[in-house]
Design a protein around this nucleic acid. Structure first.
Lengths: 330, 330
DNA sequence: ACCGCCTATGCAAACGCTTTCAGAAGGAGG
DNA sequence: CCTCCTTCTGAAAGCGTTTGCATAGGCGGT
C-alpha cells in the first residue's frame, strides 16, 4: 500500500507554483525569487519529495551514473581499485554502479551492454572478453574506458599497469640471481594482463632464460593444483599470475617438502600478500591500485566532458623483494 | 560525434510498423504476426537498437534493478555475500547495483536514498547508520530488506547472522577452557553486529566471566593498535570483532613476544582467515555467507512480488575450533 | 452472403522531469 | 509618461517506452 510517490507537480501545487519553478529551485538552473524558493523547499520537505531518477534521466538525456565492470569482487585487487574509482567519480557529482562477471568472459559482454543502457559511461576493469567483443562494444560509441587492457587499433581511452615491464623486471631479477630455467603459472587465458606477462616472459629467452608456461588461473586453489607441473619442468624459480596463485603454490611446495627459497624461488604479482595473505612474505610486483582507479575514473569523466585522450596510460610498477627468492643453486 | 542512438520509432519506421508493435515484439507482451516480428528483429539488428532504460523505467514504473549497500568492499566478508545476492537477483531477471559507504555511517543514509531513486528495491547490508535513519528510510515505504541488522518495532524484512548466539558460543567455549577474564576488541560502534556481540558478552558475566570491552574497529590495523589495551586488563583470552582484527592483534602479540595460545587465547568472527588470511589458523565463528546473500535477495524479490515477510530470519553459526585457543593458565 | 467475434495492429495518452520560449511585471532612463 | 530592458514565471513541448482503447481485417458459423 505504498501510496504513489509525490511528483514535481504535487510539489508545485502544494507550493502554488509551476513544476518548472520547482525544477529550477531544485537544480539551481535559473534564478528564482527567494520567497518562492522557500515555499518550494518547504513543500518538498513536507511531501518527502524525491525526483524520479528515470524521468530525470530521460529528460536530461543522462543518468548521472557511471558503471564499472569487474571480473571478481572476491579478488582483493579490485576493491582497492573500486574505492579509488568511487571517490573520483563521486567528486564529479555522479554515482557509481558496480557489476561483477564472476570471471566468466561470456557474461561480460552482456553485462557491459546492460551497463551502457543505464549509465553515462562504462569502465571495463581487466575485461576477459574477446577482442572482438571489446571492439563491438566500442562500436556502440558509448563512452567507455578500458582498465588493464589495451586493444590495438581501438580508439578508446585506457589505463593499464605496465605488465610487460613488470614481467621483464621479474625475469631480470631472477636472471641476476642465477636462475636459468623458470616456469610461469599463467593466469586466465583471456586476460590481457596474462598475455602481456607471457609476451615479456618469452622475450626473456633472448637473455638466456629457459622458459616454461603452465596453464593455471587466478586463484590460490588453481595455483596449488598446477604447481607440480611447474616443478616437473625442472625450473628453479616459479613466477605466478598473482600473489593468490603464488600462495597456493607455496602451500603445495611446503606440503611437498620443497624449501622456499632454498630449492625453489617464487615470485608473484599485484602485491596482495601483505594485507590479504597474512604472513606470506612473497617477492612480488606492486602497483598503486588507487592510482589505477583514480586515473581510470578521470579518463572517463574527461571523456564525458568531451576530452578524449586516446593515448593509453601506463602505470609504473615496482619490484618488492621479500623472502621467497634466492640465488639459484648451481 | 556519437550520433543519436536509435529509438523505438526508428526501428518501427525501418520495419514499417508502429513503435507499439516493436515494443510488443521485444517484450513478448502480446502476440505479433511472425513475419512482422521477423522484420522488426531484423531492423533491431540493423540499427543496433537497445531500449533506453530510463524511458522503460519511466513507462513501466520500475527499473529492473535492485540496489545493495555495503560498508566496505575491502572487507572480504561482503564479496561472498554479494556474489550470492547477484546470483539470486539475476535469476529473477533483474540486475544488481552495488554501492559502498566506505564505513562512513553518515554517508549511508544518502547513498541509500540515492539507491532508492534508481532501484526497485534496496538491500542494506550491515548498515552502520543510526536507528533513526533506518526508520526514516523505512518510512519511505520503498521496498527494502535489512541484512545483519534488526531494528525493533520496524516492519521490514530482515535476515541476520545470530550474533548473540555466536558470542554466547564463544564465551561458553572460553569458560570451558578455564578462562575467567576475557577482553573483547569491539567493532564499529554503530554496527548492530557489534552491539549484539556486546550484549551476549555482557550476559556471560552471569556465568562468572569477567569481561572487558575495548573500543576498536573492523580492520587489522585497528586490532594491532588496540591489542595492548586488551592485555592491560589482565585478560587471558581476547575476542575480536572479526578475523581481520584478530589478525592484527595476533601480529602485535607476536611482536610483543606473547605466546598464542600458550599465554593468551584468541578468537575471531566471520571465518575470513582460511581464504583471506592464509596461514592464520584462528579459532572463529563461521556462518554461510552465501546463504546470507541468497536469503536476503529472496526476501527482497518476494517483497517486490507482494509477499512481505516481517519475521526476521536468523542464520545459525558454527564455532570453528582451530589453533589460537587453549586451556587458561592457572 | 451476412453477421459477429477474435486477433493483430495502430493511435495516442500516459510516465515525471527539464528546458525553451514567450510573456508579465517592474525598474530605469529618456 | 512612455519605452526599453531585465528579471522572473508559466505553458508546453519534448525525452523514449509501454499500454489501454479503438479498429481493421479475417474467419467461421448460420
Amino acid at each position: 500500500m505504498r501510496g504513489r510517490r509525490a511528483t514535481i507537480n504535487d510539489v508545485g501545487q502544494a507550493a502554488g507554483v509551476s513544476p518548472a519553478t520547482v525544477s529550477r529551485v531544485l537544480n539551481g538552473s535559473a534564478p528564482v525569487d527567494p520567497a518562492l524558493a522557500e515555499r518550494v523547499l518547504e513543500a518538498v520537505r513536507a511531501l518527502g519529495y524525491r525526483p524520479n531518477a528515470a524521468a530525470q534521466g530521460l529528460a536530461r538525456g543522462e543518468w548521472g551514473t557511471l558503471g564499472v565492470l569487474v571480473p571478481d569482487l572476491g579478488n582483493p585487487y579490485f576493491p582497492d581499485v573500486l574505492k579509488a574509482i568511487s571517490a573520483a567519480v563521486q567528486a564529479s557529482g555522479r554515482r557509481v554502479m558496480v557489476m561483477e562477471s564472476d570471471e566468466r568472459p561470456e557474461r561480460e559482454r552482456e553485462l557491459a551492454e546492460d551497463l551502457m543502457r543505464c549509465c553515462d559511461g562504462v569502465l571495463l576493469c581487466s575485461p576477459r572478453m574477446d577482442r572482438s567483443d571489446v571492439v563491438d562494444l566500442a562500436a556502440r560509441r558509448h563512452p567507455m574506458v578500458l582498465v588493464n587492457r589495451i586493444v590495438q587499433g581501438l580508439d578508446v581511452p585506457a589505463v593499464s599497469v605496465d605488465f610487460f615491464g613488470a614481467m621483464t623486471l621479474v625475469c631480470g631479477h631472477l636472471t641476476k640471481l642465477g636462475h636459468r630455467r623458470v616456469a610461469y603459472l599463467s593466469g586466465p587465458p583471456s586476460a590481457w594482463a596474462n598475455t602481456e606477462r607471457i609476451r615479456a616472459f618469452e622475450a626473456a629467452r633472448a637473455f638466456g632464460l629457459d622458459t616454461a608456461i603452465i596453464p593455471c588461473g587466478a586463484t590460490s586453489q588453481l595455483g596449488y593444483d598446477a604447481l607440480p607441473k611447474a616443478l616437473g619442468t625442472g625450473a628453479t624459480a616459479v613466477v605466478t599470475y598473482n600473489d593468490l596463485v603464488a600462495y597456493g603454490a607455496f602451500t603445495r611446495l611446503q606440503e611437498m617438502g620443497v624449501e622456499v627459497p632454498g630449492e625453489v624461488s617464487l615470485i608473484g604479482f599485484d602485491d596482495l600478500a601483505r594485507e590479504h595473505l597474512a604472513g606470506f612474505q612473497v617477492t612480488t610486483v606492486s602497483v598503486s591500485r588507487r592510482s589505477l582507479g583514480t586515473v581510470a575514473a578521470q579518463l572517463l569523466v574527461d571523456l564525458l566532458a568531451g576530452r578524449h585522450d586516446s593515448e593509453p596510460r601506463f602505470l609504473p610498477v615496482e619490484l618488492q623483494i621479500r623472502e621467497t627468492c634466492a640465488q639459484a643453486r648451481v
